[in-house]
Design a binder for these strands. Structure first.
Lengths: 365, 365
DNA sequence: ATCACTAAGTTAATCGATTAACTTATCATT
DNA sequence: AATGATAAGTTAATCGATTAACTTAGTGAT
């Protein structure tokens, strides 16, 4: 339904006011005006207030292109999220974006948002685009190897990784401690009496797929953080092992991150008579729940469930779903903090932050 | 959990390559390079390919600040969303952002995202910030009156409103036809035999609150689109009236947009013995469902439900929830389209777009 | 041969703010 | 009184790309 109207002729095309206009009206030099605005050189109170008055009168707004060009600072941070269509990670990354935005705004920075759609190629294009546009980049990477990323960065800006880590990356990052959250969750499941615990997840990174079936306790203490899914899987194995439950590869299924995959894989897993399922991602949890409800299986009597990522819906289904909650907003805040620090002090040590998950015990196990 | 490592010393500080560097290496003038890049003046094939080769060799990336400064185009669009903390509108606006981003990227534009947090003051600040930073602004407004917005716009950029409309605004916009969706929903409810239909919503705009209890058929055809909640409420009244059901003010409750309010108001409404509820917003729907489940009321036997905004969870609760789905992604695409058109042709007629909702009939009525 | 016109490039002014280098006035010190 | 130091502002170069105005060579018509 489309309508059209005439409009817009009468824009009171007030020509933009430049620093020169302010300077003239205040009877000072442009330099002085600049000093007043940026406060980086001492200006007498008398002049300062005179300039400020004119600034308000003319409603002056500095031209950010000119400013950036001269000062080589853009006052802008880029954020690349990896979301493909139906993913519910949408809400996770949106919360992160909120956290970032909040911190940035309070420090006079802007946020440019782009979506790599989980496409490594597209990610590199975006990084290239950002080269002259931002002072820093917050990246939830989809390229698995840092090398290709590193090559397209001009090093005109700082970078902070979140949520995942490409191989070979040593810089700043903010992650969630997926290991601990999962480990605790599996433990709880076992304590509640479940023995045949299934594990459902979306794909591991290719690079870590080979150690998929290798239960390795050492790994848990000194592990290379690459892919959250992998961490969760490792934690699953270690938790089983720590409880003297043998690892059964049949109880582990990986699929794409989708509702349908969750549905299908839950079906498979249940046909293998698991008595509980740990589902390492939100949208797959939804698919699984759908299947379970269709089969009229009772949670937690027939099957115990823990989901990852506390979405709003988890507490209104019946029974309310136990879940591992990631501190999304906080990730954003911390990432923004890191990048701003790094911009201010580029040679400072890199910070590696891991945030704790929250274990929401409800009634599904 | 925080760690620190040494890193970052060895930045291969390749100094940034300027158009001048390209020109020198290709043995042409900077003007020619610019012409090749932007294709706005004819350049011979021979020179063109020579320049392109150098462009690639040096991995030249134009400095966008310089470009913007000279050409007065930023190639950037601003987007202001209104989200306060717990709102699930988060996912709605995120989908819109995706739509916008997709369209913009395909046309070489960037998206700057900010959050007004439903604070009119903050909104004006952001608009002011955007003045020199964007070529266009997509706004989900929170100020109810266009006057204040209009005053802070420098008219250096184009504007497109989405989702809501402030009073007095005549420019481009993309809305959802909330009236039709709600009207149809209420009708369906009535057809299914429900008679005492409650209506739950978050606040109307102040400016439209006064006609709250006035059932007015004319309004439905030639109405002033201001606030989605108001539209939904009007549709509710008209649908009742069209079905010869008298309007009972007791069955209508407004509250803040929160889980708790949804819970509390559903409780109130049910105590008044309504047999169905239309809930005009997502988070309140969740609260209501929670209450209904706690009371062990059967949907749809004890109470019929239609919710607004199809969130992912609506199909996995039992029974799956009927819902009015807004075409969020499409809103974004259209809004981006409008603003790009307007930028290309500023004197073109304003477009007023209303998108249809989708009525998802499931098993909750 | 002359003139008009076009085609293909180049020169240099320009966008608006920042900032290093400079000026001038004022004041304290010896 | 001479010197140096400091305070408060100003001048003008500069960031990198775009683009109006200009040059120069080549073509064709008369």
């Amino acid at each position: 339904m489309i309508q059209q109207t005439k409009f817009g002729e009468k824009m009171k095309s007030m020509k933009k006011v430049r620093i020169k206009d302010v300077a003239e009206k205040a009877e000072v030099s442009t330099a002085t005006v600049s000093h007043v605005i940026n406060g980086n050189k001492y200006v007498s109170e008398k002049i300062k207030s005179k300039v400020n008055k004119v600034l308000k009168e003319l409603n002056y707004q500095p031209n950010s292109a000119a400013r950036s060009l001269r000062s080589t600072k853009t006052n802008t941070i880029g954020f690349i999220i990896p979301i493909n269509s139906e993913d519910t990670a949408k809400s996770f990354f949106m919360s992160i974006a909120e956290g970032i935005e909040e911190k940035l705004t309070s420090r006079g920075y802007n946020l440019i948002l782009s979506n790599s759609k989980e496409d490594p190629e597209q990610e590199l294009n975006l990084i290239k685009m950002f080269n002259t546009k931002v002072d820093g980049l917050i990246l939830a990477p989809t390229n698995e190897n840092f090398k290709s990323i590193n090559e397209t960065i001009n090093h005109n800006f700082q970078i902070v990784m979140i949520d995942r880590l490409p191989i070979g990356y040593k810089g700043d990052y903010v992650l969630v401690d997926n290991f601990q959250g999962t480990y605790d969750g599996i433990n709880e499941l076992i304590k509640s009496g479940f023995k045949k615990i299934g594990f459902l997840s979306s794909g591991l990174g290719i690079t870590t797929f080979n150690d998929k079936f290798e239960v390795n306790k050492e790994l848990s203490n000194n592990r290379i953080y690459v892919n959250p899914n992998n961490e969760r899987f490792q934690a699953y194995k270690v938790a089983l092992s720590d409880n003297n439950i043998s690892f059964n590869p049949d109880y582990v299924l990986f699929g794409e991150s989708s509702f349908q995959a969750g549905y299908d894989l839950a079906k498979q897993l249940i046909s293998k008579e698991v008595d509980a399922i740990f589902i390492a991602n939100n949208i797959m949890t939804m698919g699984s729940i759908k299947f379970i409800q269709e089969q009229k299986l009772k949670i937690p009597d027939d099957i115990g469930i823990i989901g990852y990522d506390n979405s709003d819906w988890t507490e209104i289904i019946s029974p309310p779903l136990s879940a591992i909650k990631q501190p999304a907003f906080e990730i954003g805040v911390q990432a923004a903090e890191l990048i701003l620090n790094k911009i201010q002090n580029p040679t400072s040590d890199c910070q590696h932050i891991k945030l704790k998950t929250e274990n929401l015990k409800r009634s599904s196990y």
